[in-house]
Computed example of a mutant assay.
Amino acid sequence: MLDTPINKQKSYADGKILRKTAGGVGIITFNNPEKRNAMSLAMWEGLGHALSELRDDPEVRVVILTGAGDKAFVSGADISQFEQERHNAQASEEYSRKSAAQRTLLANYPKPTIACIRGFCLGGGMLVAMLADIRIAATNSQFGIPAAKLGIAYGYDGLKHLVSLVGPSWARLLMYTGMRIDAAEALRIGLVERVLPDDELWNATMDFADTISANAPLAIKAAKITVAQVLKDHGDRDMAAIRDIGVACMDSEDFREGRQAFMEKRKPRFKGR
């Protein structure tokens, strides 16, 4: 992990969402450990503010999402709010509408995102993790979507991402049973990309983030755009966007810097242009 200074922390949602930066890495923490980082509507809104500010920070090249404490990444929605905010179809629809902008922002985020998962990752926490580009989990992690045990529908976006990661059969098993799976099973079925001992998780996640931050931003943007288009139906793909970012990469200062650094046998210094 690079020895980078941690910039001053900023908070949202009465301190339940925290944001800070470490070099080119932005870090967002779900800070509600008393409720195992269960997400309230205010936390969704705070997440949106934190993501927007890191998106607009030119020094930040990658964003990590993590949970406070060692019990949970996000244990799901804050069920204590259900009676007031999600007690029937109309109220649930309004709740979903209010959090839709934040979900869309994360789903379409222009910078790479990593979910650093320790402990419970359930329900809405699974949605947050699945919306990230990369999921790295501790061995003590547990995953599940208990919608069937609560009598609620999980929603199209969440299931679309679940099916894209684990396939329809595993998606059905997880949804029909509401079962929890451990980190080893999550790795086996493709829900997460890496599983590490608990005490190695954070440093390993930062190593991945630092590596991404040091690479060429335009090349990473090209990969992110292209993968997103690959996952769309054929008729919905924006092939022009893929061509445009490819041209931008080939005409960039970074491409020239990459070639020069290779010839000079040194590390490149990419500027994102």
Results as ranks from 00 to 15, higher is better:
Glu257Ile: 01
Arg237Tyr: 05
Ala186Leu: 09
Lys149Pro: 03
Phe143Ala: 02
Thr211Asn: 14
Ala228Ser: 14
Asp244Trp: 05
Gln142Val: 08
Met175Ser: 12
Gly151His: 10
Ala171Ser: 12
Cys249Asp: 01
Arg180Asn: 12
Asn215Phe: 12
Ile212His: 12
Ser252Pro: 06
Lys160Tyr: 12
Gly235Lys: 08
Ala147Asn: 12
Gly144Ser: 08
Glu257Ala: 10
Gly178Pro: 06
Trp170Asn: 13
Ser252Thr: 06
Met206Val: 14
Ala209Arg: 08
Ser164Val: 02
Ala138Val: 04
Asn140Val: 01
Asp238Arg: 03
Asp210Met: 06
Lys160Arg: 13
Met175Asn: 11
Thr139His: 09
Ala223Gly: 06
Ile220Ala: 08
Ser252Asn: 01
Ser141Gln: 09
Lys149Gly: 04
Val195Phe: 05
Ile152Thr: 07
Ala186Ser: 01
Met250His: 10
Asp210His: 11
Ala216Tyr: 13
Gly258Trp: 07
Ala204Thr: 14
Arg243Phe: 10
Gly190Gln: 06
Ser141Ile: 01
Ile181Tyr: 04
Val192Tyr: 11
Glu253Gly: 04
Asn140Tyr: 01
Ser164Ile: 04
Val192Leu: 08
Val192Thr: 08
Ile242Cys: 10
Ala137Leu: 10
His161Val: 07
Ala184Asn: 01
Val195Ser: 03
Ala183Gln: 02
Trp202Tyr: 09
Pro168Gln: 10
Phe143Trp: 04
Ala209Asn: 11
Arg259Tyr: 13
Asp233Gln: 12
Asn140Phe: 00
Met250Lys: 09
Ala240Gln: 14
Gln142Gly: 05
Met206Asp: 08
Gly258His: 05
Gln229Lys: 03
Asp157His: 14
Asp198Asn: 03
Glu253Pro: 02
Leu187Pro: 00
Asp236Cys: 06
Pro197Leu: 03
Pro168Arg: 06
Thr177Glu: 14
Gly167Pro: 07
